[in-house]
């Protein structure tokens, strides 16, 4: 199969050089220096590596870069617009919804996609959707609060 030579990331076309089977996570982190996307488990169990592909949350450790080629890839680095944080990023700050912060980018990327599809989620909705994202520090209640805060801001 042909090597992947370019990707569209955070609105920019960037040059890469990778075999199509290479995990997208590896290309983002090691070739492009987009280290906001994290490795946590390598089996899609923790959500730390979540990015958006055409707006849908995807585990970049389980996504071959060949699959991502030609799609719009959004990473945590591309979420703020013109220096203004995404409401969910701001809500994480306002709720203090992090301890070590390693899970935070994956939580936010999953949440951005979730809130787009569910602008008025219940707490139960949030928990169900976020079940695949791990926070070992146990910051879950604040993360739920941040989701609700962001939802309230977006709908007001």
């Amino acid at each position: 199969m042909q090597r992947v030579r370019s990707l569209t990331i955070n609105g920019q076309r960037v040059a890469v050089d990778a075999e199509p089977a290479t995990p997208l996570l590896t290309v983002l982190r090691d070739q492009l220096g987009l280290t906001g996307t994290k490795y946590g488990c390598g089996e899609g169990q923790c959500g730390a590596c979540t990015v958006l592909l055409n707006g849908f949350p995807r585990r970049s450790c389980q996504t071959a870069v060949g699959v991502a080629a030609g799609k719009k890839i959004t990473t945590i680095e591309g979420l703020a617009r013109n220096g203004k944080l995404h409401p969910l990023q701001q809500a994480f700050l306002d709720e203090g919804a992090l301890q070590c912060g390693y899970c935070t980018p994956g939580m936010i990327m999953t949440g951005v996609a979730f809130l787009r599809a569910n602008p008025h989620p219940s707490e139960a909705d949030i928990r169900r959707f976020m079940q695949g994202n791990l926070c070992r520090c146990g910051t879950y209640p604040r993360i739920v609060a941040a989701f609700r805060r962001a939802a309230a801001i977006k709908s007001s």
């Binding site: 280290t35 906001g36 994480f92 700050l93 203090g96 992090l98 912060g101 980018p105 936010i108």
Partner: peptide, 9 residues
């Protein structure tokens, strides 16, 4: 905290 929510840390 800002560095963490933006992936810059």
């Amino acid at each position: 905290a800002l560095e963490f929510v933006t992936g810059q840390h």
